[in-house]
Design a protein around this nucleic acid. Structure first.
Lengths: 106, 106
DNA sequence: TGGCTATAGGTAGCCTGGCAACATGTATGA
DNA sequence: TCATACATGTTGCCAGGCTACCTATAGCCA
C-alpha cells in the first residue's frame, strides 16, 4: 500500500482503535496491524507524533502506568474525540463514495 | 471534504477520468466535479501540476489543439497509464477495505 | 467602450504530516 | 552475552495539494 495514501486518514484510524478500550502506543500499532489483516504496519515515527497531535487537539487523554517494569503511556478517547471520530467516519463514507464513484470501472 | 484526504489518490482519479476519452485540463476539472456530484472542485494549482507529473511519469500523453480561438492541451492515457490505473484501482480497493475495516461500525 | 464572466493555461512558494533514521531503556530467553 | 521483543520518543526530509498569483481569448451586457 502506497505510503501517502494514508495522509489525512490516520487520525480516524487511531481514534477508532482506542474507541472501545484505552491502549498505549505500541499496542495501537499492533491493533492497527491486527485489524487490517497485516496491511498496516506503522512505524513509531508515524504513530507517536500522531498521538501527541491528537492529545494536543483534545481528542485523546493520556496517563502513565508501569507494567512489568516497563512504562506505558495509555491513551483513551475524550468526549471531543468521540464526536471527532463520528465526524471522521462520515467524512470517510463521503470520500470513499466519491473515489469509488470516479474510479468507476462499473 | 478535508484537503489532504486526497493525498495519494488524485493520480488515480485523473487517470480514471481520461480513460474513456482524452480531455484537456479544464475539462478534467469539470469531469471530476461532475463525476463526484460536485464534491470535487479542484483548483488549477492542483490539477495542472498533477497532469505534468503524470505525463513526465509516462502515464499520459499530451497534444495541443485550438478550439474556438483557445488553446487546449489534451491529455490521453498511455498504455503505461492504463496499467497504472489498473494497479491504482487494486490499491484503492485494498485501502478502502482496510480503512473501512478499522473504522469498524460495519 | 468598458467590464464581467467563462474558458483555458500556467507557476512560485507555503505547509502539512507520514516516514526513515536515530536514540534510549527494560525484560526475557537462548 | 547477545539477540529479540517490548516500549517511548525526536529530528529532519520531502512529496504533493493548495493558495495566490499571472496571462490570454471569447462573448455578452450596459
Amino acid at each position: 500500500m502506497k505510503a501517502d495514501a494514508l495522509r489525512g486518514h490516520l487520525d480516524s484510524l487511531i481514534l477508532a482503535v482506542v474507541e472501545k478500550q484505552p491502549l498505549h502506543g505500541y499496542a495501537i500499532i499492533e491493533a492497527l496491524s491486527a485489524r487490517s489483516g497485516g496491511e498496516l504496519d506503522l512505524p513509531t515515527g508515524t504513530i507517536y507524533p500522531a498521538l501527541r497531535r491528537l492529545e494536543k487537539a483534545g481528542y485523546l487523554d493520556s496517563s502513565w502506568s508501569e507494567v512489568g517494569g516497563r512504562k506505558r503511556r495509555t491513551y483513551e478517547l475524550s468526549s471531543a474525540g468521540r464526536s471527532a471520530l463520528a465526524a471522521h467516519r462520515q467524512e470517510w463514507r463521503t470520500f470513499a463514495k466519491v473515489v469509488s464513484g470516479v474510479l468507476g470501472e462499473a
